[in-house]
Design a protein around this nucleic acid. Structure first.
Ligand SMILES: [Mn+2]
Ligand SMILES: [Mn+2]
Ligand SMILES: [Zn+2]
Ligand SMILES: [Zn+2]
Lengths: 142, 142
DNA sequence: TTATCAATTAATAATCATTACTCTTTGATA
DNA sequence: TATCAAAGAGTAATGATTATTAATTGATAA
């Protein structure tokens, strides 16, 4: 998602949500992230800029982003939830050793989803494709 | 999974786990289930037969079944976790209205997984394919 | 610009699924 | 039948998330 403050402000206003510096900060961080951050990760990052920000604000902004369809929540076997701004059809490859998550997109994935969709009468509301695989870094350290 | 007490008892013994009536009851129920029950559902069911059983025992038996690779845990946006004895490659179709889950298996799904696997160097440790779709029952009630 | 006020925030308490702990009971072995 | 580690029941603790509350602030219009 290529996002900037201007776009975000328009989005919020069009939905009747107020624009606050906390929201802009959180949204920018999450929407630009590629590591599927947890709420705690988002919180500790935004805290650098807004010293007094509360976890509740982070959770509420996450809920907003979900409602607006800009991120999805990943519920993995390992709590806590992680958040994903990549709204393309893709596979999340999760390393069970270090819990890192990386995106995988390919023709195979895309075609699968199109075929599945048509098999299911084209009324799929959402999807989540997870695969567990030891990551590069973890497979190096013996 | 076609399971009976005899098979279960062998499995437990081969792993050095003790065979208890509570375990047999829980395992039989979960392994025969097709509705992806939650821990609470399993608990309330087994409680009919073993009045004094504790949730802790249910959770510990679930952990055993996971460890033995007989079930998988599904973490959906809706807590609590659900458990799935179907170890074939399949899609879980989740209804966001009533949280019912049904299995979907097809050529498309199977081929996708084989192709993905080969694209990822054949070392996938597990997978989870979720799709959200209003179920029959819910789409009927307007 | 300033007043107004509902929406938002920070701080904190509550919730609830899951796990840990402790003490009692029991299955497996000899 | 005795032994004892493993497993059970009951209960406390944990931890992520949500709810609550009182203070603050963004949006609007005078
Ligand atoms: Mn992703
Ligand atoms: Mn299933
Ligand atoms: Zn790793
Ligand atoms: Zn339904």
């Amino acid at each position: 998602m290529d996002i900037n403050d201007e776009k975000l402000i328009k989005l919020f206003h069009s939905r009747g949500f107020k624009v606050t510096p906390q929201r802009l900060g959180i949204c920018n961080y999450v929407l630009k992230s590629t590591d599927h951050p947890s709420a705690e990760k988002i919180y500790s990052n935004i805290k650098k800029k807004y010293k007094t920000i509360s976890r509740a604000t982070v959770y509420k902004t996450i809920a907003l982003l979900k409602e607006m369809g800009l991120i999805s929540e990943l519920n993995l076997n390992t709590t806590p939830s992680r958040y994903d701004p990549n709204q393309n059809i893709h596979v999340n490859i999760i390393c069970p050793k270090c819990n890192s998550i990386s995106d995988y997109e390919s023709e195979v994935v895309e075609e699968f989803f199109l075929n599945l969709k048509s098999e299911l009468d084209n009324d799929i509301l959402g999807q989540n494709l997870d695969v567990y695989k030891i990551c590069e870094t973890c497979s190096k350290k013996k």
